[in-house]
Amino acid sequence: MLSLSKNKWFWFSFLLALVISSNFLIYRLESLGPLPTGIALGSLFDFVITIPLLVYLFIIRKRYSLKYILPVMIAGYGAAVLIIPHGLLSAYSFVKYILLAGEVAFFLVELYVVFMLFATFPRIIKSYRKNESEIPTFIYRMKQASEQHLKPSRVQDIFFSDMTMFYYSLFSWQKKPMSPDERMYTYHKKTGTITLYVMLIHALVLESIGFHFLLHSWNPIVSIIALVLNVYTLLFFIAEIQAIRHCPIMITDRHLYLQVGIIKQLIVPLENVKSIHYYDGPEKLTKDQERHIFDAVVADFFKEKPTFEVEFYHPIEARFMYGFKKKVTKAHLRLDESQKFYNTLTARINEFDAQ
C-alpha cells in the first residue's frame, strides 16, 4: 500500500505545485511577454518528463512497477494541453502520437494478459472444484487454484478482486456462514460494522437516485458514469458484509489466516509467530507504526482499540485488493471470543516452540 512520510508528501506536493504553477503563470502574466518560440517545448518537457520523474522518485520507486510511468506521462500531456496556448503547442503535436503509440503498446500487452486469463479460466474453475484446501472459503480456494495455472500479475489481481466482489455480493446468499469452533473465530458480532455498511448502502441508494436525475439533466453521459460507479460501490459494500460473515479468522495446524472482508488478507505460518499479548498501546498510531501493522479490526462507528497484538519473527507480506501489498511485523486483532482464541493460538505457538 502507498505509504509516504509527511516529509516526502510535503516535498512532492511542493515540487509538483511549483512546476505546474510556474508553467501556468508563464502563459498568463502579460509582463513576461513576448514569449520565446521554444517555451512550449520547455513546458512539454516539464509535464511529460519532469512530473513523471517526480512521481517515480517519490511514489513509484521500490513500490510499484515502472509501467505506471506511462499513464502519468499521458496525464501530464493532458495537463499541458490545458495550460499551453494552442498556437504554441501545435508545432509539437508529434509528442501526443509518441505517447499514444506507447499507450497502445501497453494496452495490447495488457489485452494479451486478459486473453490468457480468460483462456485459462475453465482450468482454474476445474482446479477450484477439485482442490480441498485446509481453508474452505472462496477467497483462499480461488487463490490456490489460480496460482496453479497463472503467473502473478496486476491484471490478474484486479480481475480476481472484482470476481471475489461479485461472488460475495451476488452468489453467496444461499450459503450459511461457517459455525465458530476451535479453528474459526468471528470478529464482527460484537461490533456495529454490519449496521455501518447497511447505513452506507441506504445512503448510497438514496443519493444515487436523486443525484442521477440531477446529473442527467446536465449531462447524460456523466450521469451514466456516476450511476455505474455507484452500482459498483453498492456491490462492494454488500460483498464486504458477506465476506465478513463468511470468512472468520482461522487457526489451522500450521497457519493463522486473517481475512478481513474482501479488502485485506494475511497468512501467517505459526512458526513465525513470536508472541500474542493483550494490546496496551495507544489508540491512534503514527503513520510509521501503521506501515508495519496489519489491522484486522473491522470498521465501526467508533474506532475500537484492538484486543490482541500478534508479533512475528520475520516480516510477512499482507495482500490487499487489486494487488496492493506491504510487509508487516505485527497484527492487531479484536474477536468475539477473545479468550478462546488467545488460548488456542498460545497453545499452537507453544507446540512449535517445543519442537
Rank of each mutant, 00 (worst) to 15 (best):
K6C: 07
F10W: 08
S13W: 09
F14S: 09
L15R: 05
A17N: 13
I20M: 05
S22R: 14
N23K: 12
E30F: 04
S31F: 07
S31A: 15
L35N: 10
A40E: 09
L41M: 08
G42L: 11
S43D: 06
D46E: 04
L53E: 14
L57H: 11
L70Q: 05
P71Q: 15
G76Y: 05
G78H: 14
L82F: 11
I83V: 14
H86E: 13
G87V: 03
S90L: 14
A91L: 10
F94L: 04
F94P: 04
F94D: 11
V95M: 12
G102Y: 04
F107M: 09
P122A: 03
S127H: 10
S133H: 15
L150H: 02
P152L: 05
D157V: 07
F159I: 15
M163F: 05
M163H: 05
M165G: 00
F166R: 04
Y167F: 12
Y168N: 05
Y168G: 01
S169W: 00
P177Y: 10
M178P: 06
S179R: 10
R183W: 13
Y185L: 02
Y187H: 08
H188N: 03
K189D: 02
T191H: 09
T191M: 07
G192F: 00
L204E: 00
V205E: 00
V205W: 00
E207R: 01
G210C: 01
H212Q: 00
P220H: 12
S223R: 09
I225R: 11
V231S: 10
F236W: 06
I241E: 01
Q242I: 14
I249R: 02
M250A: 12
M250Y: 14
M250K: 06
R254T: 15
Y257K: 07
L258M: 12
V260W: 10
V260G: 09
I262Y: 14
P269C: 10
K274P: 15
H277W: 06
D280Q: 05
K284Y: 03
R291W: 05
H292N: 09
A296S: 10
E304N: 06
P306H: 01
T307V: 02
A318W: 02
F320L: 11
F320I: 13
F324Q: 01
K325L: 06
V328S: 02
H332Y: 15
L333C: 11
E337I: 15
Q339C: 01
N343R: 12
N350V: 02
N350K: 15
E351H: 05
A354W: 12
Q355T: 10
